[in-house]
């Protein structure tokens, strides 16, 4: 058996260097194998754990693959109607200004049906954190075209590839919200390699810490994969993401406060 290879001399509590954050519930993640949602969840939870703010944090789950995020995060959470998470977060933060409030949304939720809520929460400069998972597709409903689907990219509702003439252009909503005076910190990251995960973690932590400064909204996009929707194996999907998604959605900080 493969597990026999564990080295009993090394596997001791005092030698521990990495373990799953205690802020996950015991429920197995419902995401497809290799899906970036799990890693993005973990980074949010690690941040909350490290900041010691579990009892001060309220999260908002979207409609989409991560609709059940509240099942996996041991955080007080509300599940919003499709696209409306920033509206819920706005009210909660204004009613509890000292709490930490975040939304966790996919591209269909945030950049299509919830565009108005997203833009206006950003423009008002609500002191919340928005975590935006962009995999260019509607994963949960079975791989339909999303607002962020790339030109020429195939989906179940663009089976011959996204035709810009008839289906319109992909929306770079992260660049768009970075233009608004209400956003304080805007960053685009990924979670497909160890280095990318470290950078994404840093951005998410910054986004949560910014809530203390009360200077506006922090927005972190995670460009992610959708193996099932893209119809690829996980490792292949990550490579496709590097080759196709990143040129259109380049990684890095998009808006950084002047004093940082």
């Amino acid at each position: 058996m493969a597990e026999n290879s564990i080295n009993k001399d090394i596997v001791k509590e005092e030698n521990l260097v990495f373990k799953k954050t205690g802020l996950f519930t015991d429920k197995p993640l419902s995401y497809c194998p290799g899906c970036g949602h799990g890693t993005a969840h973990r980074l949010v939870l690690e941040t909350i754990e490290e900041m010691g703010i579990q009892s001060e944090t309220i999260g908002i789950a979207p409609v989409g693959c991560s609709v059940l995020a509240y099942e996996f995060m041991d955080i007080d959470m509300q599940q919003a109607a499709h696209g409306r998470a920033p509206a819920l977060a706005t009210a909660i933060k204004r009613l509890y200004p000292e709490k930490f409030v975040f939304t966790y949304q996919g591209d269909g939720d945030l950049a299509a049906i919830g565009t108005a809520e997203t833009i206006h929460a950003c423009n008002r400069g609500e002191n919340i954190t928005i975590i935006f998972i962009n995999n260019g597709i509607y994963g949960m409903t079975g791989g339909q075209m999303a607002p962020t689907t790339l030109p020429g990219m195939k989906s179940s509702t663009s089976p011959y590839g996204r035709d810009i003439q008839s289906m319109g252009n992909p929306l770079k909503i992260t660049e768009l919200v970075a233009q608004l005076p209400g956003t304080y910190f805007v960053s685009r990251q990924a979670v497909h390699t160890p280095a990318a995960v470290r950078k994404a973690k840093k951005a998410i932590k910054t986004a949560f810490e910014n809530q203390k400064l009360k200077k506006g909204l922090s927005f972190v996009e995670i460009v992610s994969n959708c193996n099932s929707g893209w119809k690829m194996e996980p490792v292949q999907a990550n490579q496709w993401m590097v080759d196709n998604m990143f040129p259109f959605y380049p990684l890095g900080d998009i808006k950084v406060p002047a004093e940082q």
């Binding site: 919003a80 109607a81 509206a87 819920l88 706005t90 809520e117």
Partner: peptide, 11 residues
């Protein structure tokens, strides 16, 4: 109005 009622939901 959609945002307003969803703010009510959150609160």
């Amino acid at each position: 109005e959609v945002a307003a009622i969803n703010m009510v939901y959150g609160g």
